[in-house]
Design a protein around this nucleic acid. Structure first.
Length: 416
RNA sequence: CGGAGUGUAGUGUAACGGUAGCAUUAAUGCUUUGGGAGCAUUCGGUCCGGGUUCAAAUCCCGGCACUCCGACCA
């Protein structure tokens, strides 16, 4: 993409109404636009990052048997009354509205009811199970206080997968697979070494749920890490009994702040009971479907990546989620020869299937480099009179801080 | 929802109750071109509603919005 066609502009100064690093850098880089507290639009660059994350998650979900679909945002009150989650006294962060005919509808704050209800139509035999269905969706939560930029918004984008199994044994097998898939996701988006699988409170059907917590000072959660076991325990469930059970010792635990970037938990039959999701087993006996839930907030994940990799006035995206692979900067000035060469490498890289943000604007170097620092693409390629004379391009690995001089072919090779 | 703070141009900031200024952006021209360049000209603003006053960005009341701390986070 030619940067001259990118309508978003970087900002020299921090917005005065944001304190969190993620919102500061994402707004300054032109990734998001603040609509109101806790509500942000995704600009072209931000959407590209989200799509990258989305594809990473999609691949992992599909690899463990997930089937993608899309549930509606408008929700039917009757369904939620059956699970006792319509009443504001029970769930206080609903956004609710009315149809013209006066009927109440809600905007999805989660998806258990929708999936369970849909599947009552389609599941009748043990042969229909298991089912692993998921969607990417805008979710609405009427938080009393949104905070920390895009980490806790009133409207956000998430992935939720629901597993429907014949029984707990079958459920547990998938649950363990989901854990591995989640680890793969966080590794791929660049958070692997800072993200810990964390024991958290479970609910009716299991002792624990598992959260994926990424260590950072800007986190809201307190967790206790056992570095040797590579696990963590959420402060909310930490007690002697739990320590005993997990074989951990208090004196080896380290207290850390973290952001919950994902969670998986066992739902059991709570929703299938309430909504009548049953199947007939081999003997013709009626059984309740056993459920699990697996969530990741994509917008929160993007914010977390910025918290981890952002510095003052500078961002370096992990390669897998970077909006483009290469930031090509042309320092042509008035030199039409340099411009020709810049256009040429842009075309060659693009033709090779590489995503390039091409800074073809007529601006000074300082400004172009400052923009590149904010936009955060990890690989920067400069085309200038200097590089033209050397018959190559300057390639900077921004993460390592290394500069090399390569031909177009060598750059393509480097990215393959 | 409780507490604290803040609302001035697209952005960031000044102004004792007395001419709304500076920087940046944008526009035009000339110069400049490897880290937010220089000169000149131009455009653009006091959150909303009420009150006090000869006079309100400034004081008072109400509303709205935003930030932070706490509570909450299925």
């Amino acid at each position: 993409m030619r940067q001259s066609k990118l309508f978003s502009k970087t900002r020299f100064e921090s917005p005065k109404d944001e304190v969190s690093k993620n919102a500061d850098l994402l707004i300054r880089g032109g990734f998001i636009f603040k609509e109101m507290a806790g509500v942000y639009s995704l600009l072209p660059l931000g959407l590209r990052v989200i799509k990258k994350i989305e594809n990473i998650i999609r691949e992992e979900m599909n690899s463990i048997g997930g089937t993608e679909m899309k549930t509606s945002v408008l929700q039917n009150k009757e369904i939620w009354e059956k699970t006792n989650r319509w009443d504001d006294a029970v769930v206080d962060n609903w956004f609710k509205t009315k149809l013209k005919n006066g009927a109440d509808v809600g905007l999805s704050f989660t998806n258990e009811e929708a999936y369970t209800n849909i599947l009552t139509q389609y599941v009748s035999s043990y042969k229909d199970l298991p089912i692993y269905a998921y969607d990417f969706k805008d979710i609405f939560r009427n938080e009393t206080r949104s905070k920390s930029g895009i980490l806790r918004g009133r409207e956000f984008y998430w992935k939720a997968l629901y597993s429907f199994s014949q029984n707990e044994t079958e459920h547990n097998r998938f649950y363990e697979k989901a854990k591995v898939a989640y680890e793969g996701i966080f590794k791929k988006v660049g958070l692997g070494d800072k993200t810990y699988i964390t024991f958290a409170s479970g609910g009716t059907f299991s002792k624990y749920s598992h959260e994926f917590q990424t260590l950072t000072e800007s986190g809201e959660d307190i967790i206790y890490i056992d570095e040797a076991k590579k696990i963590a325990i959420n402060k909310e469930v930490l007690n002697d009994e739990v320590l005993n059970e997990l074989g951990a010792r208090r004196d080896t635990l380290v207290e850390k702040k973290a952001i919950e970037v994902g969670n998986i938990f066992t739902l059991g039959t709570r929703f299938s009971d309430a909504l009548g999701l049953k199947y007939k087993d081999e003997k013709g006996e009626s059984k309740q479907v056993f459920m699990g839930c697996y969530g990741i907030g994509l917008t929160r994940l993007m914010g977390t990546i910025v918290e981890i990799f952002g510095k003052e006035g500078e961002m370096i995206w992990p390669e897998e989620v970077s909006p483009f692979k290469i930031h090509l900067i042309s320092l042509a000035g008035n030199d039409s020869e340099v411009e020709k060469i810049s256009d040429k490498i842009y075309k060659e890289l693009t033709d090779a299937g590489i995503e390039v943000l091409y800074d073809d604007r007529d601006m000074r170097v300082g400004e172009k480099f400052a923009d590149a620092d904010l936009i955060g693409i990890p690989l920067r390629v400069v085309s200038s009179k200097k590089t033209m004379e050397k018959n190559c391009f300057e390639v900077k690995d921004r993460k390592k801080g290394e500069i090399s001089y390569l031909s177009t072919e060598e750059i393509i090779k480097k990215l393959k």
